[in-house]
Amino acid sequence: MKHRSSARRLTLMTMLLAMSILLHMVEPALPIPVPGVKLGLANIVGLITLFLFGVKEMITVNVMRVVMASLLRGILFGTGFWLSLSGVLLSTLVTILLYKQNKLSKIGLSVASGAFHGIGQIGALILINNTVMMIYWLPMLWFSSVPTGYVTGTLSVQVLKRLKVTERNRV
């Protein structure tokens, strides 16, 4: 699946961004019994972008997703926005670093991304609320990244398999 045309590339990226915004906005409606824990479905699109396009495009899609979803929800520059942004920036950075190491599979990358998303959010919470005790939430978020990362990682693998994309055959 080679797409050399920049228009096609732009269209694909826009579609991925739209999908990630949709997943980002729909996700809070999913009933998960543990407060603060989310599946991180939008992370699937982030990983797909990384393997379809590359590092820069993943950063663009992830950051734009947070900005656009916050804008649509009307919480731009609010607490929720900063929590999402810090989580996404840290998780994207760590995912890229681990991706460059080329040791973890997509599932491993997804787990690491989820884990560091939690750390980024807790860090922002500590700064915003000015209390270190928010760190009490970290073990649960850190732990939950294993099952949620496994689920999102597996979904990414399945989607990429159906798109028939290999790492050498990027867009």
Partner: peptide, 10 residues
């Protein structure tokens, strides 16, 4: 490595 990461996190 995935397994090691998961065990490390748990």
């Amino acid at each position: 490595y995935d397994k090691a990461l998961m065990i490390f996190i748990v």
